[in-house]
Design a protein around this nucleic acid. Structure first.
Lengths: 214, 214, 214, 214
DNA sequence: TATGAATGAGATTTCATTCAT
DNA sequence: AATGAATGAAATCTCATTCAT
């Protein structure tokens, strides 16, 4: 399935492994061009409205070549998703111990800022995410997984905060939902918001929500 | 455009308003059948994956008849959206004055419960909403408008709460985002949540976020 | 086939033949309304582009009623055609003996003027004619017949003129072609012409063509 | 629009003009096959009655491929039209100085013969022309333009003949109308005519009409 | 006589994907 | 590794015509 979904290695590597890599390097370049073009296309038109044609045209790559590297549109999107997933996962791990008081608030805001940056960098994918998510009932797996792990990390932090939240899992879901969706609004240009206000407000709300008694 | 987008009146209504209702009634029935079928179809497969064919099959209506009542898929969706918009708007108006303390918290929870019910009732549309929203850059107007008005109502309540929030608009956007998106998670069956937990948690978080110092 | 093509008598006349004719009269009125509407519609959009729907809407008649009077679009057009055919035939009979000299020229011009008036009055049908003519290989019969009889009348006049034309049939075809097509140009607004110039020129050319040696 | 109306270059020609011609040649061939098939189909059934399906079947080409080369039926027709337009324009330029007497008559007949040959070669398009002309009010531009330029050329010749015609523009319109329409009759097989008689008669009539006093 | 809702065949068009070169 | 022409399944939409009331 890896082979079916993402033919990253497709250009056959058995032959001539010590040739000046030009072949292999060229292939890698093509793949990257496609990924870049795809991200732009998804950003511009959204996941569903993007045609394979839009991607290959933007990449100045032939139609046939696309299928040499990716099995289909979904696969490119999956590849993009993985990058984002990785970044998001690593930011997830930076999540500080949650604690009350101004220091805790500042730490939280710094972290929300990091998350926000990932969203800003990959707005396109995130947006398309929301689209693809609701659609087909089975291929949203990757997107889900990422957010799930992210949510779990947050849940465990919430659970170990003092005082403990009465329902860390639900709270984590809600907070992740808020962060994600608010950034979507930001990206969509709905509401007159800028990223700084969003980050501040999110951090403040989350901190307030988790430590209401202070 | 009303004519083009939503041919609700299509079966020609100009003449003789007091003619035997039967014929007109039949038309209205068909229209309703289509709306019901559409809502189900969108719920089952999502907006993009739903074909006009799915709708007419479910409604046991011929393909041609569909186009007698709606110009296209978008138009049915628009009609559904309007219903939800109306319900959401009326719930928005029920929003209580936000105030600290257990009474305020209880009031807020009751309200979140109301909102939640709308979401539960129209999960399908809400989900499809998220999809169509990010997609075409221009016809998401209606969906946007609804949430916008909803958000504004919340923002004004937040602004007049005591103590006042430092950034009511941003806060309102974030809170609406949280409520909406969390319900999407709930609908999607992601995370092991039930509606009660979600409502409680959302209310608690929102209340805590708005009145952190108590 | 008359029955199939033109259900003029459709509204069943067996019953109650001596009722105050209201029934029958009403039917006749409806039929006329449809004919008028059809002529307008054909004029506005051309034969092919005209939908039965355009006709019934313009006539403020229901869709079903249309089929009570005419089997289809072609049939209405056929009915219109017959009117024009009749007028054209009667004008054809007015064709004067063709003779040289200024008197002959004046007589010819008068006649061309008569023809022109028929064309002006029924421009719509004439235009649609040209369309329907080339289209289906079998139902252009009526239109053809009319022009054919018209052409034959002209041919016989040409044949009996002095001096006789070397090829009266061909000449008649060409002359009828010229008169018809020039009026189409006039109707279409192509070229800056007015009817008077057209009539004069046509008459002059025809007369010159038939009596070149004078 | 060029891109939309006539995707003649569709099989993407930007890169590498000296690449093995075969691929590009194949595309060109396909395009030609489609044009030929289209001309035949229009000839057989007329413009309106011809379906894209008729064309692709005759060309032994898949439906999808058609849309690779032409945006729609109108576009193929437009492409055909251009060919005819070019031929007609070049014949138009051959129009001799019009002069009285047998030599002038012979010259004119030779020219009418040339025109006639174009009509014979492209009867299909010419017929469809007449159809499409009266139909849509806006896309008949090309066809109109051709005849207009043709007419203008004739008008200027008529204007500079000796003696001058009293209304060269109107005369030119009428004469072009006669030539065109008579050929349509010929093509349609109406009237028992052959091309030679038509050419002779047209030439004789035109000459007589323009130089009546001789 | 008249209505107009419903039908369904058929036409157009799009686009992901394959395949010969 | 790359190309791009060709494919064809599928989706959308239109409209002449029927039929129950």
């Amino acid at each position: 399935m890896a082979d079916r979904e993402d033919r990253r290695n497709a250009p056959d590597e058995r032959s001539d492994p010590d040739r000046p890599t030009s072949r292999r390097a060229r292939g890698a370049l093509t793949r990257r061009k496609l990924l870049v073009a795809a991200e732009e296309a998804f950003a511009a038109k959204g996941y569903h409205a993007t045609r394979v044609d839009d991607i290959v045209k933007a990449a100045h790559i032939s139609h046939g070549t696309f299928y040499l590297y990716f099995a289909n549109k979904e696969a490119v999107f999956g590849a993009l998703t993985e990058t984002v997933a990785a970044e998001l996962a690593s930011v997830g791990e930076l999540l500080p111990v949650l604690r009350p008081g101004p220091v805790g608030a500042a730490e939280l805001e710094a972290w929300v800022g990091e998350v926000s940056e990932v969203f800003a960098r990959h707005g396109a994918v995130i947006r398309a995410w929301a689209e693809s998510e609701t659609a087909a009932t089975d291929d949203r797996s990757r997107a889900d997984d990422v957010l799930k792990r992210f949510t779990e990390a947050l849940a465990s932090r919430i659970a170990s905060a003092e005082p403990p939240d009465p329902d860390p899992e639900a709270a984590a879901v809600a907070i992740v939902a808020m962060i994600e969706r608010t950034h979507l609004s930001l990206l969509a240009g709905r509401a007159d918001l800028d990223r700084q206000r969003v980050v501040r407000t999110l951090a403040r709300l989350v901190h307030g929500a988790l430590f209401p008694g202070r």
